[in-house]
């Protein structure tokens, strides 16, 4: 009898907590969209906001969101792509090629790196990455610096997630491989890599949405000019940077325009989540 009551109690408590969570998320979404809507309504032509012009002069009444959206996508996409290239081989190497002691050290380092707040990555970016980039281009604060800083910032989380994937495999998978007499290359390339690729959509989704939502590290290193990037060395401004830069002093229409860009971020994150989930399912089904 007793455990049953306990179970019921636990059920009620967890239900309440999840309701509160839903309520809070709901109120955030509601607030952002209601504020965005007032901006949406105040503009004469909505299409004008998404034209391919490059003017963002809120105090002169000019709002164009397209350059910001494009910049956010390239930053997020670029960082996720680099992450894919670096984190998968790194995780495989750390888990299957290193000695036990080195592997432990690597694990510890990755967990530590996970705890570093993003502002530190931003600071590291402006004191080291930006001056380094100035050796190749007269301007160091640009798209490339942004992508580099974001990649380094997301790297530990991606490694941790892929490590979790490896730990979730049945234990005998390694023993079976060894008893079949497979070399470590065959094991890694023919067995482990395909298994990891199956779980990659989730890892990439999380990295991409985090990259899109990242603010402080990006503000410090990308130059924040509202322009369509013409190359890897173009300065760009992301949607999130826009809010961080101007929110403190914005009033009236300017303020609601910034909340509108907050709404845009939400829409982008939600839609990538839905698309990624869909694509992920299709990929997994195909490979099975």
């Amino acid at each position: 009898m007793f455990p049953l009551i306990k179970d019921k109690l636990f059920l009620i408590v967890s239900f309440l907590i999840s309701l509160i969570a839903v309520f809070i998320i709901g109120s955030i979404v509601f607030y952002i969209f209601s504020e965005s809507y007032s901006f949406y309504g105040s503009q004469s032509s909505v299409l004008d906001l998404f034209s391919f012009k490059e003017s963002w002069y809120p105090l002169e009444g000019e709002f164009q969101f397209m350059p910001l959206i494009v910049a956010s996508f390239i930053l997020g996409g670029g960082a996720t792509f680099l992450l894919l290239i670096f984190s998968v081989p790194y995780t495989l190497g750390q888990n299957f090629l290193l000695s036990k002691r080195l592997k432990k050290a690597g694990d510890l380092l990755i967990s530590l790196a996970n705890a570093i707040p993003s502002v530190v990555y931003g600071f590291w970016g402006i004191t080291l990455v930006v001056p380094f980039i100035t050796k190749f281009n007269f301007l160091g604060t640009n798209l490339l610096s942004g992508i580099i800083v974001l990649t380094f910032m997301l790297f530990p989380t991606a490694v941790l997630l892929i490590t979790r994937v490896i730990y979730s495999w049945p234990k005998d998978i390694h023993q079976n491989c060894i008893s079949l007499g497979l070399s470590s290359e065959t094991r890694i390339f023919k067995i482990y890599l395909p298994l990891i690729f199956k779980e990659l959509p989730t890892v990439l989704l999380l990295s991409f949405t985090r990259a899109i939502g990242e603010t402080i590290a990006v503000v410090m290193v990308t130059g924040n000019i509202v322009k369509f990037p013409t190359g890897i060395f173009s300065p760009v401004r992301a949607l999130t940077s826009n809010i961080a830069l101007e929110m403190a002093y914005a009033t009236g229409t300017h303020r609601s325009a910034l909340l509108f860009s907050g709404g845009l971020i939400l829409v982008i994150i939600f839609s990538t989540m839905i698309i990624f989930k869909g694509v992920g399912h299709v990929l997994v089904k195909k490979s099975v």
Binding site: S55, V219, G223, N224, I225, L245
Partner: peptide
């Protein structure tokens, strides 16, 4: 709008 900047800061 008449200022041509390379970096914008907060």
């Amino acid at each position: 709008s008449s200022i041509k900047s390379h970096v914008i800061i907060g």
